[in-house]
Structure formats: C-alpha cells, structure tokens
Design a binder for these strands. Structure first.
Lengths: 192, 192
DNA sequence: TAAAATCATTGACATTTATCAATAGTTTTT
DNA sequence: AAAAACTATTGATAAATGTCAATGATTTTA
C-alpha cells in the first residue's frame, strides 16, 4: 500500500505533493506470502525495501545449519542488506516474510537519485540511518556487557511488540543464545 | 594538527579551499595525555570528535566494575557518543586516551551548521555514518553467530593494527569475553 | 479431520566460560 | 635503581550454556 508509505514520510518531514508522488512513482510493489524470501544468501541485494505491511526477518545460516537472526522488520520499517548493496557483493543473509507482507522496493540507482534530487527525502533517510546506527550500538553494548537473562529482559523491554509477535526461539536466535537456554531462563525467572 | 584533518577530508571529497578553511575554523583543538578522559560517564556529550593523532577507547563500567569496550579510535577516526549527542542525555560511556592524542572537537551546532552549509561535507559525513553502520552490523553478526575463538580470530583479521596496539585484555573486553578465556584460546591455538 | 510440522519444555550430560587466586615477566613511575 | 602497576598465564573450581533426545501442546497443512 502506497498510502502507508505516504503517511510514513509525511509524518517525518514536510514535503510537497509533487515530490511525494515522484518518490512513489519509483516504488516497486512486492507482495510476499508467509515463508517467501525477499533475499536469498548468495544473491546481491540491489534495493531499499520499505515494509508497508507484514513482518520480515533477516538471518544467516552457519555451517551447522543454525540460523542467526540479524533483524526483525515490521510494517513501517526498512530492510535489506546494506553491505551487499554498497559493495555489490553476494549477501550472507536471507530475508524472509514471517507473515504475509507488502514491500515497496526502490532500486539503488533510483533511490540515490531521489536522495540527490529531493533534499528533505535525503535528510529523512540520513536521519533513519543515524537512528539505526544508534540502535545497533546499543545492541552491541548489550551483547558484550549483559548476561543472557539481561539480554532477554532488555529485548522484551525494548521491543515488546516484536517479542509478542515471534516464537521464542527466534528471540533466542536474535540475542545469540540457544532456545533451550532461553526457555530455562524464563522458567527460572517465573519461580521468583 | 589541522593538516591531518585537511588531508582526511581532501582524500575523501573534492572541496574548495574556502570551504575547507571554514570547517577548520570551527575546530577546537584538544590535547590529551595518556589516561586522560575526553568524556566521563554521566556527562552529556556535545561534540563530534576527530582523532588527528593518538589512540582512544570508549568503554562502560558495569556494577561489578568490569569494563566493556565499545570502540577503539586511532588517528583518522571519529569518536563520541551519538546517543548522548542526539538525545542530550547523560552518557553511559567513558572515552579515554590510551596514548597521547590530539583531537579536533566540533560543537554539535557548528557541525550541523557546516553539514547544512557545505554540501560535500554533509555527504562525507553521511558516508562515514553509512560505513560505520555496516561495520557495526558486522560486529553484531559476529557476536551472535561466532564462537569466542572465531570472534578473536575475526578481530585480529579485521583490525590487525589495533590488535597490535592494545593489551590483550582489551581485545577480550571488546569481543565480550574474559581475559583469561582469551589467554587460553590463544594458548590452545598455539599448540596446533 | 487426520497427519504433519512447529514450538516450548525438560532431563541428562558435555563443553565452554567465568571467577578467584597465585605467579612471573614487563613496563611505568617514583 | 627500586617500587609500583600492569599484563599475561595458569590452575582449580563453579557457573553458565550448548547439545541431544524425548515429550506434549499447539498450529498448520493436506
């Protein structure tokens, strides 16, 4: 739905109707059913992707077949693989719809052109990047300084709506512990 | 040294002499001797800081007194606490000179003004932010998917010059393991 | 509606890691 | 030059976490 994206932008910056429509004119609408992949490991990622509805996850799979979840992307969030996008190298990650989803894709070149051309759009994009960076720093700090139990509590505190939306083992994967350990942490905490 | 910063910028973007001098005119030179602090936990961080010489680390201290190193910043890198800067909240972190260092400080307002005014400077800054984000994503991926040994090998591989410049226990702190464990990992690896 | 898949839990056990303490080598400070 | 501080290592032990397997509940699929 283009309306969702329109609202997303106008909530963040003041922009003319013309500019807004120009941006929208480059959006490629993609519908994904649950379990479908937006990106597969080994492919080069060439877009900026806005989730207008649904829910996605980005994850890698290691030698042992264990999945490691890098991010969850609900509606009104972006997803993609910036490393692959910038370097044009094969991605290490998969992006999969956990629910039926609607995505707006912007080709790299189109997106960059829009950033150059529409100043407020560029500002918005950089602001988002800025906030994403701060968020990722916080995740790093958690990962090196907290116990597993603290990581879990922190996750639920910071992302309650995501915690309610995904199976427990995916939270475990996101914070970097085994599903069994998370299960035990929770049952321990309940006893208190 | 302003020359270092000049070279840093001109290596990255083409910029007029006038614009370059305007940027430089806002730089506040700060010299730090080894062990001196650029930022102390609890203070609000209000700058963008460019390291023109020397070497800094950013770290937190937890309840038990254990330090957790968020970043190392050698010459030609930036440091600071973006979360504190953006939200104007007390920082959780300390920034300390590990060697005698020279820092260029730009007040938040000046830096933002320069970004608005000098287009190529803004582009450069956003590029750096972009790369920093990609780097931090990579660190997150390591933290959730690699074993301690792999984290260490990965660190040395990616940051050989830093690995040679800091005591081993600081690498342990950066990757989120105890110094004893890192020592044992290394001695195990030597046996092979 | 029956079968299959997914999910969370639990037990048993192995492995990894942290903690505490002691030591010795090195570097820094006085 | 001596003292102090820092650093890396090692041993002993405890704690945390992972792995494998089984179970039952729930959800999804056919």
């Amino acid at each position: 739905m283009l309306e969702v994206f329109k609202k997303y932008i106008t909530d963040k910056v003041s922009i003319s109707e013309d500019e807004l429509n120009e941006i929208l004119s480059y959006a490629i609408l993609k519908k994904l059913r649950k379990r479908q992949f937006l990106l597969q490991e080994g492919d080069v990622w060439r877009y900026n992707a806005f989730v207008s509805s649904g829910f996605l996850r980005k994850f890698s799979v290691d030698d042992k077949g264990t999945e490691h979840i890098m991010s969850f992307s609900p509606e009104n969030y972006w997803t993609g693989d910036r490393e692959s996008l910038v370097n044009e190298t094969p991605s290490k990650f998969n992006i999969e719809a956990l629910e039926n989803s609607e995505i707006l894709l912007f080709k790299k070149e189109d997106f960059e052109m829009l950033c150059r051309k529409i100043h407020v759009f560029n500002n918005m994009v950089n602001n988002i990047l800025h906030r994403s960076f701060i968020t990722s720093q916080s995740r790093i700090h958690s990962s090196i300084s907290l116990s597993s139990e603290e990581k879990y509590n922190n996750f639920v505190l910071k992302f309650p709506s995501i915690a309610n939306r995904v199976p427990q083992h995916m939270i475990a994967s996101y914070i970097g512990i085994s599903p069994e350990t998370l299960s035990r942490i929770r049952s321990q905490a309940n006893k208190k």
